[in-house]
Computed example of a mutant assay.
Amino acid sequence: MPRRPRPAGAATAALALALVAAAPAGDEEPLVTEARIVTHLDPAAGQTPENIALEPDGSADLTFAYARTVTHVTPDGARTVRARLPEVAAPATPVMHNALVTGIARAHDGTLYVNYATGTSATGVWRVPPGGGAPVRIARLPPDGLPNGLALDESRGVLYATDSVRGTIWRVPRAGGTATAWATGPALAPLPAPALDCGANGVKVHRGAVWVSNTDRGTLLRIPVAPDGAAGPVETRATGLDGIDDFAFPGPGTSVVAALNTVGRVVLVRPDGTTTTLLTGRDGLSEPTSVAVRGRTVYVPSASYRARRDPNLLLARLRHLIGRG
Rank of each mutant, 00 (worst) to 15 (best):
R6K: 14
G26F: 01
L31Y: 03
L31T: 05
I37M: 13
H40V: 04
Q47C: 01
E50R: 02
D61W: 09
A83M: 10
P86S: 09
V95W: 02
L100P: 04
T111K: 03
V114A: 15
N115Y: 11
G133T: 12
P135V: 05
V136W: 00
A139L: 15
G145L: 10
G149M: 08
G149Y: 07
R156P: 04
L159V: 14
V172I: 15
V172D: 14
A179R: 03
A181H: 13
W182H: 12
T184G: 09
A193Y: 07
A195K: 08
A200T: 13
G208W: 13
T215S: 14
L221K: 02
I223K: 01
A226Y: 05
D228V: 08
G229W: 12
A231M: 07
A231N: 04
T239H: 09
G240E: 11
P250Q: 06
T254M: 01
S255K: 01
V256Y: 06
A259K: 11
V263K: 00
R265E: 14
V266P: 00
T277L: 05
T277E: 13
T280H: 01
S290A: 15
V293F: 06
Y299V: 04
V300S: 03
A303P: 07
L315R: 13
L315Y: 07
R324N: 13
